[in-house]
Computed example of a mutant assay.
Amino acid sequence: MPEFQIPPPLNSKDLENLLVDMFNEIHSTSSFKSFGKNGHKQKGLDIISLEKNIVIQSKLKDLTRKAILIKRELLNDIEETVNLILKEQPKINFDVLYIATTYSEHPDFDEYCETIKEDTKLDFDIIFWGWETIQRKLIALPKTLSSHFSNFIIHPQSSKEIKILSRLDMKRKIENDFGDWLNYSFENRKRNSKMIIHSIDDTKYPEHELNQEGKYQWFGAEIRSRSHKGLEFTTAIEEIYVDKDYFWTDELQKNYEDFLKIKVARVSVIDYEDIVDYDLRGDEHYIKPHFFCKFKHNGTPFIEQYYMTLNNKDVPYYFDITTKKRYS
């Protein structure tokens, strides 16, 4: 339970409006909107984004009732929502269905969502957000927070703590969702390690477009590992020349005999807080996970890059790309 408490909305329309603004701010878009109004045939959907291929069903609950009754009702709501979508077949393409509610989190909801997906062989994911998750997201969304909770004030001394909470939240999600890659060494993985990394500002995908810094707005990279700094990707395999003091260059030298040519992987690190969202399923162009990131580091999403030697025990394992020497 977070230390801060934001009161949930009192009616269904306020909750729906809150979620629309939240998702628009999270995804840096204006494409999320209510799907019809009361009385319209909503086909199990309250909110949609045709741009992001996301739909949302919001569930406001009377929290004065017994918890066991609300929990049972929510489990039934999840099943009914899925059944209604399958029955009505809304003519909307989507990859993810969010169930968002004012009730509390519980592992049973997440497990039930996964069970329904497997049992009915759904071609979309179901993600459950209880009020704790919504609160954590809201703290990192100043525009939505000020619009819907004008009396809620984040004290300056807690801003760093909130930033850390948001970063840790993304780190935990990635560790959970990408365990099939991150929990195994590269050679022992059963799944392809290639991922697609997008700028959140890119509007031309699948076409390639250069940003103002002359860098591509999306590209492929192989997920390698995680560290305290962020998520690490192999973005290139290169050759460098290393001298006896372990300084390196990527240019062939005249006194070549004094240099050892080695093969290295360029490892590029994305800070967890620069990862806005990801899609495990991919799309019709690349059926593999897609990351959507802030490209705010010289036109790239990378806070750091270094070389890692491949199959060479005669030189240090890591080389600093900036200083052109080994890591001490």
Results as ranks from 00 to 15, higher is better:
Pro2Leu: 14
Asn11Phe: 05
Leu18Ser: 02
Leu18Tyr: 02
Asn24Ile: 03
Glu25Cys: 00
Ile26Met: 14
Ser30Asn: 15
Asn38Gly: 10
His40Trp: 03
Lys41Tyr: 03
Lys43Leu: 08
Asn53His: 13
Ile54Thr: 09
Ile54Gln: 04
Gln57Lys: 13
Lys59Tyr: 04
Leu63Pro: 03
Thr64Ala: 12
Ile68Ala: 08
Ile70Met: 00
Ile70Ser: 01
Glu73Trp: 01
Glu73Arg: 02
Val82Cys: 09
Asn83Ala: 13
Ile85Asp: 03
Leu97Val: 07
Ile99Glu: 01
Glu105Ser: 11
Asp108Trp: 03
Asp108Ala: 14
Tyr112Pro: 03
Tyr112Lys: 15
Ile116Cys: 02
Thr120His: 12
Lys121Pro: 00
Ile126Thr: 07
Glu132Phe: 04
Thr133Gly: 07
Gln135Met: 14
Leu138Glu: 02
Leu138Trp: 01
Leu145Ala: 09
Ser147Val: 07
Gln157Arg: 05
Ile164His: 13
Met170Trp: 01
Lys171Phe: 12
Asn176Thr: 15
Glu187Cys: 03
Lys194Ile: 13
Asp201Asn: 15
Tyr205Arg: 00
Gln212Ser: 15
Tyr216Asn: 15
Trp218Asn: 07
Ala221Cys: 04
Arg224Trp: 14
Arg224Asn: 14
Ser227Asp: 06
Gly230Asp: 02
Thr234Glu: 12
Ile240Pro: 02
Tyr241Asn: 00
Asp243Val: 00
Asp250Ala: 07
Leu252Phe: 14
Tyr256Phe: 04
Lys263Ile: 15
Ser268His: 01
Asp271Ala: 15
Tyr272Asn: 10
Asp274Ala: 08
Ile275Pro: 04
Ile275Cys: 09
Arg281Tyr: 04
Gly282Cys: 04
Glu284Ser: 10
Tyr286Val: 02
His290Lys: 07
Phe291Gly: 01
Cys293Glu: 02
Phe302Trp: 06
Gln305Cys: 12
Tyr306Met: 06
Asn312Cys: 15
Pro316Tyr: 01
Pro316Ser: 09
Phe319Met: 06
Thr323Tyr: 14
Arg326Ile: 03
